[in-house]
Design a protein around this nucleic acid. Structure first.
Lengths: 248, 248
DNA sequence: CTCGTTTATGCATGTTCTTGCATGTTGCTG
DNA sequence: CAGCAACATGCAAGAACATGCATAAACGAG
């Protein structure tokens, strides 16, 4: 294994779990603790981590809202993301909207695929910055800080010209009876457009999203093609709607 | 086997596996390690790979460019940013384009001002995410990973409808005689539009930018209104052009 | 065909990089 | 405070690397 690969792997583990233990890394990679410490020193020098006694943590989040949400349940989201990433095929065009889970998905997208990703979330674009194989189209417009996404008529107008194979939707609520819902009217509008412009609808939902309902309806639950969830319990109802359920 | 065939084969293996080991290649092709190293050097020169100790990886601007650029000279950029931030007045509309210094500036903008910020750089938008007082408009379009910004006709079209009080330009070169220059044609185009649409032009430049010239000319040096630099030396020439020079 | 030139390659040399180990220091915990 | 784990530092071995040079093949012009 190349040194650079090891550094990359450590960075991935960091962003997934928020922390790494020096001992574990040494065992895992089959190198000495010293080497791992050197790696962590290097990563810290480049600002990718913060060294602590016993290992390293992600750098102290400077941005309050978004970064916190991102690190919350990082482990679960990373696993959801890996499963979701397997649903993507080479050459596809994807809509990916704003959500912390979707940032994890963007990070998990296979590096060897050539994808076209359309997003109204600047965070998704920056998450994909490390992969020059992808074409990334940012939908501009008024940026809503709390959502981490561009909303509004300008954004919608741009989306209306682009069709995609799949929409990876960051949902606020998914319920078999009441459908897919969003918390915010502005968010809802652009999401509806993205749904209309996409062949497949994929949602990766943490358990707290399932069975909950937000004010603004996006579409019927049956419109969902892939639903990636944490556990198998209670998913029969979704399967009966002809949704492909993937539990991690 | 011809040299070109070998190079092609290495490129295929690279794009397939994401990495190659110098030793393996030497064995596989029945040539010496030296020859393989020469091949990898050539491929790296052409941008097809990134050489690392032991072999080569697919190019990943991530490690090299954006993140490192951001952490590189971080303290200098932070001080430049603080000074630049004092030039901004409440209620103003700003263009801020992509550059690591500009991300520092975005972070340094006074939290108590109400600003309208227009940017083609997703990173700038996320940097401003923690301040709900600002209105942020993202210029969309094709996202250029290595630049961290949206470029191209769509982006330019959107910019053409928006006028600003000030443009905070992330310059590649500033020279009294040869003017302000950019490294890339696409970058240059959108920057020219932003210059034309803004009343004031502000540049925060690390010392290595001063007196250097990049291929694509943006405007005359005299067009600059505020120039924020590290040191006072040699700035008289800029002052004579009626530029307000602020040294930190 | 012959000669000079270019190109690709391997080898020898010295340099740099990575890694593990030994040593001593620091930080945590009971 | 004592003991231990984690840590920093210096060092040495080996791998990978750059460079210069020699050889041989390929090439083009006369």
């Amino acid at each position: 294994m190349l040194t650079e690969e090891r550094l990359d792997a450590i960075r991935r583990m960091l962003s997934e779990h928020g922390k790494v233990l020096a001992n574990d890394l040494a065992t895992q990679f089959g190198v000495s603790d010293d080497t791992i410490r050197r790696d962590l020193r290097e990563l810290a020098r480049l600002g990718y981590c913060r060294r602590v006694y016993g290992g390293a943590l992600l750098p102290s989040p400077d941005t309050g809202t978004l970064a916190v949400r991102t690190s919350d349940q990082a482990d679960v989201k990373a696993r959801l993301a890996r499963t979701t990433a397997t649903l993507v095929r080479d050459g596809q065009t994807l809509y990916i909207d704003a959500s912390s889970t979707n940032i994890a998905i963007a990070n998990a997208l296979p590096k060897d695929l050539r994808l076209t990703v359309i997003t109204n979330a600047p965070g998704i674009a920056t998450a994909l910055s490390d992969n020059p194989r992808h074409a990334i189209i940012v939908l501009g417009g008024l940026y809503e800080q709390s959502k981490g996404a561009c909303l509004g008529p300008q954004t919608i107008r741009e989306a209306e010209n682009i069709f995609a194979d799949m929409f990876v939707l960051g949902a606020c609520g998914v319920d078999t009876a009441l459908g897919v819902t969003a918390l915010d009217a502005g968010e809802a509008e652009i999401k509806r457009v993205m749904i209309a412009q996409s062949s497949l609808l994929t949602i990766a939902a943490t358990t707290d999203k399932l069975g909950t309902v937000a004010p603004f309806k996006l579409t019927e639950a049956a419109r969902i093609d892939h639903l990636v969830v944490e556990a198998e319990e209670g998913m029969e109802a979704y399967r009966q709607l002809d949704i492909e359920v993937h539990s991690i």
